[in-house]
């Protein structure tokens, strides 16, 4: 493939977080003024229906107004999403011993990639999440006792309290 763009896809529960909230987080997570390196590496919102399209345009207008500068982030319809190779998935998790425990729970590759537990583990291991939800989640991720200890130590070793800019 020479015409693809690297993206990530999130399945979310709209009763917990809205698409607008995710858009807000997206805008906070990149520099919308920077020119894209290439088609492969560019900031982009790929909408899947007209509601998402309208909300994406609305959020872009707000950012443009707030920054008072042109915004290079593109908004386009999603045509097709291809899963990246396995080594790209839950990248941080894969370099830890916790991965073995997740592989036992999910011998099937598709299930492992789409698991909430693996996504959340990867997030915590990367320093994202809230300290108050971590203390609950740590027992819900299917880890052994030693796995839970490894996770808690890894999170503590990050040196900064868990924070996530998600709307509360």
């Amino acid at each position: 493939m020479g015409d693809h763009t690297e993206t990530f896809q999130i399945d979310f529960d709209p009763t917990i977080i809205s698409y607008m909230d995710l858009l807000q987080l997206f805008w906070q997570s990149h520099n919308p003024k920077r020119k894209a390196w290439s088609r492969q590496y560019r900031a982009i919102i790929l909408y899947q229906n007209e509601i998402q399209h309208e909300q994406a345009l609305q959020s872009k207008t707000q950012v443009k107004t707030a920054l008072n500068t042109p915004v290079t982030t593109d908004i386009l319809p999603l045509v097709k999403f291809y899963l990246a190779e396995g080594y790209h998935q839950k990248y941080r998790l894969q370099s830890t011993p916790l991965m073995e425990e997740m592989r036992i729970a999910y011998p099937n590759n598709q299930e492992w990639i789409h698991s909430t537990a693996t996504a959340r583990l990867n997030g915590y291991l990367s320093g994202y999440g809230l300290a108050e939800t971590f203390s609950v989640d740590v027992t819900q991720l299917g880890l052994s006792g030693s796995g839970e200890s490894i996770l808690a130590k890894s999170v503590a070793m990050l040196g900064t309290p868990l924070t996530c800019p998600l709307p509360r």
Binding site: D11, S115, T116
Partner: peptide
């Protein structure tokens, strides 16, 4: 009655309840 074997694994508790309605969002960060 059919006879089959199946490997049983236990899903993490957090994955045992799936919301009825999920939506999908797709982004690229450059």
């Amino acid at each position: 009655m059919s006879l089959h074997t199946q490997t049983q694994t236990t899903k993490p508790p957090i994955d045992q309840t799936v919301p009825l309605h999920l939506e999908t969002a797709t982004f690229g960060l450059g």
